[in-house]
Design a protein around this nucleic acid. Structure first.
Lengths: 140, 140
DNA sequence: CTACTTTCTCTAGCGACTAGAGGAGCAAGC
DNA sequence: GCTTGCTCCTCTAGTCGCTAGAGAAAGTAG
């Protein structure tokens, strides 16, 4: 149908207008046809693709990852092994990321807990950071 | 003492040489005195400060946060509410990211499992992510 | 037809580095 | 002393994923 302006797409996907143009520029989103007056005209498929890109970005995937993920679906009849290995690699990456974030969460939680007992606060946040810097030096 | 070269400091803190100079440039690390031949000379206090910076960066603190944390250590008698709130703010953000990544992990895992069972693989990652984008749009 | 909004292209900026050019200092071996 | 090879110096420019702004043209409502 191609009835959607870039502003409408922006509103529906919550992706800012300049970002949509940026995605087109780097080839994540195909360049849409234009009107007589040179305006971009999108359709529902573009909205879906853009929603996908946005969600993947929010989850921390890099643009190159997204490019691969999109190419996974571009040829649905491709060999399952190839698709499987690409997906597995992404899964591993996600797992690594979760592990790193979880270690960070534990550390931050401890820092906040120790600071939040309502006692005279000796700024454990700073001590933890400084000590770990020291420990890292001696341990590794 | 001031006996340490930038390379030695780099080795001991595991912060790369250009990064140390960069931290000096943006004022995170004080500019050290120089030798006759214009080389930077550091001491143990610099190493500690840099280790602190590195650890905070690894935990995902932004440079501005680190600047605040360092300024708090400079005046240890001030309240630690500020340091605590920086850490709390960060903790919340980390928890949000973990939750989202974990949702994705489950979906990716399921897709990989389905592929691994030898069924026809329709590679539904794109739909999963696109749907999540849709849900987010309607929920929030 | 005017006033306003949207869109267009283009360039430049952000954070937090990282890489490279081109030159100078310095320590060791011959 | 002289050369080899490493470290260090400054400087500029590149990276990624946007974001902001200028200035102009197109579309829309009254």
């Amino acid at each position: 149908m191609r009835t959607l302006s870039i502003g409408e797409v922006s509103r529906r996907t919550e992706v800012k207008v300049p970002t949509i143009r940026f995605y087109e520029q780097i080839g994540l989103l195909p360049a849409p046809p234009r009107t007589e007056g040179n305006r971009r005209r999108y359709d529902e498929a573009d909205v879906r693709r853009l929603a996908f890109i946005r969600h993947a970005r929010e989850l921390g995937f890099e643009v190159e990852d997204i490019r691969e993920l999109l190419s996974l679906t571009a040829q649905p009849n491709r060999s399952c092994h190839e698709a499987d290995s690409i997906a597995s690699r992404h899964l591993q990456e996600v797992e690594r990321r979760i592990a790193r974030l979880d270690a960070l969460r534990v550390e931050l939680q401890r820092m906040v807990d120790e600071c939040g007992h309502g006692r005279v606060c000796d700024c454990r946040v700073i001590q933890v950071l400084a000590d770990h810097g020291q420990c890292a030096h001696h341990r590794h």
